[in-house]
Design a binder for these strands. Structure first.
Lengths: 246, 246
DNA sequence: CGATCGGTTGAGAGAGATCAACGCAGGTGG
DNA sequence: CCACCTGCGTTGATCTCTCTCAACCGATCG
């Protein structure tokens, strides 16, 4: 149950600031980020507050209960959002993907820690400056709030999964919901990339690593998926749906 | 696993509208509701949109996936917020208490159903009118957003509980968090009222009714709590804390 | 080549589910 | 006033799904 995260702690931020290189106007994730509601002039205003930040795989972007000095837009890569129990048991609250915003709640401290699953590109804003901007731009606040509402329904989906689904249903559900999230951000493919390891999935689904592995091979043997390096190929969506109990 | 909710379906809304009887200005829950950020003139504006609504115990305020025609402030009583799996398995996402706001996400449809655990008093607003008001009052939106952020951290607490805690820890945690919520709304007492039944707790904690019952009697035998009709008396908070693994 | 890391597989154990009986309070109707 | 029923909670016996412990496999790397 106790986990060794194997996390790199120092230097915590392996970051290169780049004010240059194509601004917000041609940001890859703008259409799917909170920024999509901003006008071009507003975007320039925002840009003056922004810093690009690159993080290497395995490093922490921020830690649980740490003062929230910045808020972040994920541009490229994937993050794991976790909470720890004092005895080391871990729950992965979710995974952040391109277009996701970290710091939605605008609270003083982060309620989770965030670690890079891949090499990561983000766009960050000093939190106080950002909240100032938000005060002045109600439609940006509305955009954040809409996202918060969406996050809340995702959290509810996850609670239903954790509380009432079997191991097989959990794994099938997880694959489908990840596919769904990729689809929302444009990417749609038969092969589903899994940037997280088995332990991360287990801690997300309330299972052990062994059970996740067994269920994946079971899905494979049922020809619902095909296990491939770095992910799974979704062979039979209908079967997956029925196995997920949706 | 399948549950008969025993829910009264028709008449769904047993409601008495009362525009009279002391307005928002002397509303019991104003200081702890979203309305607390409004000025007196704004409050009058809000009041013109509000309707009091009374619901009898056991009746549904709204159903999952139902178009969200109204948003609600809970004034008195308690609600159970649930989601169902197609096969009838149920997850209780939470319990709404006085001061809570239902419809935070301002989305077209409710993501949960809400049923009265006790006789209930609410103050409701036609959703479209309310969102209109929110557009015009950024500080109200900010208040809603802050609440959404708080709800999100509660949801994370619950995910950690569901995914990584043992049955005993779940029950101990639940009692403490309920106490915490009562305390936030002013009420603080050694005897914790439990307006929900054992099945509701079970469906909230991802357990069965029998396990909840067993864990409660175990806590009783350990002299951490005393089971009393309609609730529990908290005898040893320190012991409860340690049993809850916080 | 040995070592490490991530993942898979097997055997056995245990926490919680399932099935079943029972107790008690409240309501109903004779 | 008592017999009966129903709803809710408790307790016991047994079962099973998932965890635990352990071995193993292949890839990567110094």
């Amino acid at each position: 149950m106790l986990v060794d995260t194997g996390l790199q702690e120092s230097p915590r931020h392996v970051c290169h600031h780049r004010q240059s290189e194509g601004g917000c106007a041609d940001c890859k994730v703008r259409p799917i980020s909170v920024c999509s509601v901003l006008t071009l002039p507003e975007l320039e205003e925002l840009e003056s507050l922004s810093q690009h930040l690159v993080l290497e795989k395995g490093h922490a972007l921020f830690g649980q209960d740490e003062p929230a000095g910045y808020v972040y837009n994920v541009i490229e890569g994937a993050l794991r959002l976790t909470r720890l129990l004092p005895d080391g048991r871990r729950q992965v609250m979710g995974f952040a993907l391109p277009g996701d915003f970290l710091g939605l709640a605008l609270q003083d401290r982060f309620s989770v820690s965030a670690e890079a699953l891949t090499s990561l590109k983000t766009c960050r804003f000093e939190r106080r400056a950002f909240t100032g901007l938000v005060q002045a731009k109600p439609h940006l606040l509305r955009s954040l709030h809409d996202r918060a509402g969406y996050e809340l329904t995702l959290a509810q989906d996850q609670m239903l999964l954790l509380g009432r689904r079997t191991a097989e249903e959990k794994v099938a559900s997880f694959l489908l919901s990840l596919r769904e999230r990729y689809a929302r951000t444009g990417r749609t493919s038969v092969t589903l990339e899994l940037p997280m390891g088995r332990q991360d999935m287990a801690d997300h689904l309330g299972l052990t690593i062994e059970t996740v592995s067994r269920m994946l091979t079971r899905l494979d043997r049922q020809h619902a998926v095909l296990l491939v390096p770095g992910g799974v190929r979704l062979l039979d969506l209908a079967k997956l749906e029925s196995l997920s109990a949706n």
